Computed example of a mutant assay.
Amino acid sequence: MLSKVLSFFGNNQNGLTASRVNHVDRDYQRTFCRVPDETKLSPSLLEKRRTRDHVLKAFTQRVRISLINNTRAVTRAQERHQLSPIMTKLVGRAMSAASLLASWQYGDERVILEFRGTGPVEMIYAEAIRNGEVRAYTTTPKVNQASNMPLGLALGGGGTLRITKVLYNQASPYHSVVPLASADISSDIFNYYKYSEQIPAYVDLDTQLDYQDRVTFSGGLIIEALPALKDEKSNQNYLEPYVHRLQNLPPMSVLFGQDKHSLKTVLKAILQEELEEHSIQKLLVDFHCRCSKDKITKLLIKLQKEDLREFLDRQPGEKAVTCQFCNERYMLDTREVEELEALSKD
């Protein structure tokens, strides 16, 4: 019971009613995603807004495409969880994938990715909500390997990717499990589209570090054939012109890092004359966790007294609880501990 409660701390998946979700979504948008009058912003603030983490998505009659630059969000995850270089790359890619998949959902609907490997990396978790929130963690933040070794060796072969979608008006979440492909995140998300969604797709995700292991770029894109293409012959080949245009461009890490191009520039280069301005939508992205001291004390109260005492006895002196999703640490003073013990179940 104890491990179950603590492992799901902050993972508020149930009870998604439209009224509650819309209220939360409006609050988040007001706090994080307001669209200011840009005529009143200074040049420096305009530049900051232009380069802020975001998803840009659009669709045509045949495909839909979503692109992301989440360099700041991945940097924050790296700092909060003290990730090793290899784990920063893997977690960064997982965060990009979660945000891209969530961008096609509604309001507070969420997408959860759980990568479970057979190598040194046990598990990577990434969760994103359409309104821009993303958070992630790994059970093995310090794993490292030589830089010249394939990224997928850390997760190892034989693992699985579990994708969960928590949707409006659904009694229970939707789950899909597919085997890991190359365990490099990009190919694993491609596997999901191929075997679970059965939709032709192209996936390209990347996270780059400098010589000091600082994140210089994180992002990527997913191109999906729309369902109408399922009845057409060689629908996978239909994506080839878009992929060819993309591959004629410099790597995304160069476009956004050195050349300072925007996501919209890349979007136009891929879709060209098919792109219609009205189909473009921008969604700001932030590393954000809804945990709080109040939430965690409510969860601890649900424990049996014996389980609560076992948990508290693990920590001599001051008591603290850490949110695994964002690594925020909450201290409990003597009075709070006594109240928890009094209110917990017998």
Rank of each mutant, 00 (worst) to 15 (best):
A126D: 01
R62Y: 13
H81C: 06
R116H: 07
V91E: 09
N69F: 05
E79N: 10
S66L: 06
H81P: 04
Q78K: 11
S96F: 02
L90Y: 05
A98R: 12
T75P: 01
S96D: 04
G117Q: 12
M123C: 08
R64Q: 15
E79F: 10
S99W: 05
A73E: 02
L101V: 05
V91G: 07
L83P: 07
A97D: 01
A126Y: 04
I68N: 06
E114I: 15
S99C: 12
F115C: 08
R62K: 14
I86T: 15
T75K: 11
V121M: 03
L67P: 04
R80S: 06
Y125P: 03
T75V: 01
Q82N: 15
A98F: 10
E79I: 14
G107Y: 00
T75W: 00
E127W: 08
R72A: 13
R116Y: 05
R64L: 11
S99H: 06
I124W: 05
A77C: 12
G92N: 14
R64Y: 09
I112N: 11
V63C: 12
G107C: 07
H81S: 07
Q82F: 10
L100D: 04
P120K: 15
E127R: 12
Q105Y: 03
S84D: 09
P120H: 13
P85W: 00
P85S: 01
R80Y: 08
A98T: 07
R62S: 14
R130W: 00
P85I: 00
I129K: 01
G92Q: 13
D108T: 09
T75F: 02
A77R: 05
P120C: 09
I68K: 07
R93P: 02
R110F: 04
L101G: 02
A102N: 06
L101R: 11
Y125S: 06
I129G: 01
L83K: 13
G117E: 08
R76T: 07
G107S: 13
A98W: 00
A97Y: 00
V63N: 13
H81D: 05
R72H: 14
P85F: 00
M87E: 02
D108V: 05
V91Y: 08
F115I: 10
D108G: 15
E79H: 10
I124T: 10
S99Q: 13
R76C: 01
V111S: 14
E79K: 15
V74A: 09
Y106D: 08
I129R: 05
A97L: 07
S96E: 05
Q78M: 00
Y106H: 06
A94I: 10
E114S: 12
T75Q: 12
S96W: 01
K89I: 00
L90I: 15
R62V: 10
F115H: 10
I129W: 03
L100P: 02
L101A: 03
A97G: 08
M95D: 08
R72E: 15
E114H: 09
